[in-house]
Simulated assay, not measured.
Amino acid sequence: MGTPSARAPARTRLLDAAEELFYEHGIAATGVDAVLRRAHVAPATLYAHFPGKDHLVAAYLQRRHERWVCTWDAALRRAGEDPLARLLSVFEALEDLQGVQDAGRGCAFLAAAVEVADPRHPAHPWLVADTELLTGRLRSLAVDAGAADPDALAAELLLLYDGALAGRARRALTSAATTPPPVRDLAAAAVARHLPVRPGS
């Protein structure tokens, strides 16, 4: 990812820089000075928009969460009323998101959760929101599809989702060309095990 454009508003440049650096290097390892240099802003500009680094971390995760919600919502609209397509939309959205933001180092929220352990941290609600969105929506879609055990199906799909992101991180560690695992196919097989057999299917 490149340096944030000098033409963008200062808050946007700060968030662009924070997103790149926090995701590339980790939150604790990224100092405010590095964000300021990448964003080409003065310290006073940062503190005019954010009370401190913790709130910048929260804004970074909020922005990433909102982008993910919009991407998944779009995939659900494309899926229409097909229960199987709606259950698998999370994997379609994950592929769509790769074209919008870097996901080569795994899940930004799980990585941040390791560093943001204090529930009083301003970023903590966004870590909770990410997990609640995934678990709640997957379960709701499983219920709508008629799964015999919606909780089990949602948990299995979440494991595949997390595994897909972890697989990207592993592939990023090697320069060798590797074939991405057929996560959507694995997910479709999981769904098939949980849904009732319909006549003619």
Rank of each mutant, 00 (worst) to 15 (best):
P150E: 02
T3A: 14
A6H: 12
T179P: 01
A79D: 07
L97T: 09
L84E: 14
A59N: 02
V32H: 09
D144W: 11
P4H: 04
W68Q: 13
L97N: 08
T45A: 02
R184E: 05
G99F: 12
A28K: 14
G80P: 04
G2M: 11
R7Q: 14
V114N: 01
R38G: 05
A103H: 11
F109E: 06
L138S: 01
T3Q: 13
K53A: 03
R77E: 15
P122Y: 05
Y47N: 08
A177M: 12
A188T: 09
L186F: 10
L94H: 13
G80V: 04
A48V: 08
A75F: 05
V57D: 01
Y60K: 09
A6T: 13
L186R: 12
Q62F: 09
H124C: 08
Q101T: 14
F50W: 06
L133V: 08
D162T: 12
D82S: 03
H40N: 13
R38I: 07
R193W: 12
R137W: 11
L157A: 06
A85T: 09
L153V: 08
D73W: 06
S201D: 15
E115H: 03
A154V: 08
R120K: 11
A190E: 09
A192D: 14
G2D: 13
L88G: 04
L94M: 14
L61M: 03
D96G: 08
S201N: 07
L127K: 00
T178N: 10
Y161P: 09
Q98W: 13
E19T: 14
A129F: 02
L141Q: 09
G99D: 15
A48W: 13
